[in-house]
């Protein structure tokens, strides 16, 4: 199915959010995840199922003042 991940179209075999993160090699601890308009709770990542056309945002924690 086709998702929109971080603003770009992405063809994938998986419909599971955690597996999608693995596909992108993104550590779930380093991001906040948004699926469509909803922010996904940390403990819900593993059980979140995606459907065709979903928009996923992987928003990284960024610090970097000092």
């Amino acid at each position: 199915m086709e998702l929109v991940v971080n603003g770009e179209k992405h063809e994938t075999e998986t419909s599971n959010l955690l597996e999608l993160l693995e596909e992108f090699d993104v550590n779930p601890d380093l991001v906040s995840l948004k699926v469509n308009e909803q922010v996904v709770n940390k403990d819900r990542i593993e059980v979140t199922e995606l459907s065709d056309g979903d928009e996923v945002e992987m928003l990284f924690f960024m610090g970097g003042g000092n």
Partner: peptide
């Protein structure tokens, strides 16, 4: 947007 602080040790 970022409901919880990141886990200890994971922080970039």
């Amino acid at each position: 947007v970022f409901p919880e602080p990141p886990k200890p040790g994971s922080i970039p």
